[in-house]
Design a protein around this nucleic acid. Sequence first.
DNA 1: ACCTGAACACCGTTCAAGT
DNA 2: ACCTGAACACCGTTCAAGT
Lengths: 190, 190
Amino acid sequence: MGNTRADILHAARAILSDHSLADLTMRRLATEVGVRPNALYWHFPNKQSMLAALADDLLADVDTAADLSWDDGLRATAVGMRAALLAVPDSAEVVSSAWASGLAENDLAGRLSARALDGGLSPAAARGVATGICQLTIGLTIEEQTRSQMERLGVIGPSGRDFEAEFTEALEVILDGARAARRAHDVGAP
Amino acid sequence: MGNTRADILHAARAILSDHSLADLTMRRLATEVGVRPNALYWHFPNKQSMLAALADDLLADVDTAADLSWDDGLRATAVGMRAALLAVPDSAEVVSSAWASGLAENDLAGRLSARALDGGLSPAAARGVATGICQLTIGLTIEEQTRSQMERLGVIGPSGRDFEAEFTEALEVILDGARAARRAHDVGAP
DNA sequence: ACCTGAACACCGTTCAAGT
DNA sequence: ACCTGAACACCGTTCAAGT
């Protein structure tokens, strides 16, 4: 009795950390919180909303590194986002569906886009970089976390893939593209 | 009696087309095929494998446009992949989890990477472009299809986002980056 | 080779009611 | 404001058995 949204989200994060997304059911979450399943529906209208709140929670501490140059700032944000996701198993999947549902509040893509705009990119290119970075980070981390979950369960062997390298390589291609777009947009400007 | 894998996959695709991924349950799929749920487990070891086979099916006709220049070929492949996904509701989500599970056979990322390598990029850059293109296409299409599914159900209003523009903008940034990486790699070569 | 019957151990969600 | 009891309408999967 007397649970808050934050208590529930904390328990949800613990289930991901100690088990997996498959184990993050409303029934199990309720048990963990010490309540009956239906009690959760006083705090959240449905599971999807709970997951969206969790997604915001998971990315709450990712900042856009305003102290760096625009391109280093973009890179640092991407790296920070990836680190935040890797810290909690299956969190990338949670963020992906939260963003897709439109229920998430933390608009990292928007903030990345604003940062790129500040750096001198055209609005179109700025949005393009932000989109590319977000989709890359989430998508690749989903793959990595799904694999390690399956390895942990012994259902599949190690993939031999170097996700860190794949991430860095793709990120640098996007940043190269961003710089090229800036040069094209900047002709004649200071 | 006498159903083949292809019959089942065809029925699965029809469920996506006419309803949604939420409706694509093994029980419903069985009903559609005219069989009891457990009969499906003669054809597939589990639901995940069935979805992986469906994912391969959905992307079977995407080719890497070998008649075009390397960068136009990459663009055409990405556009073709997106078109194939948009043709079937929720298919991007299916492909995403199939790729993450490692059960998919169609290695589009590998083929894109080979194409970029042929075009004169370094192995690292080639893999980076392929990764960026695949994650962008899948991730953004997941968002688009999830939204349109939610709009169809009336649970959410139109987002006002222009996914086509977001896709093109991000894709061009990646291709700009690929060309920049090629120039850097090509110094002194023909 | 391909399917059924029957069961196991679960889900998310709703609604009226309690305190 | 926050929770319980009881129920509804589902899931994926397994196993022995049928033809």
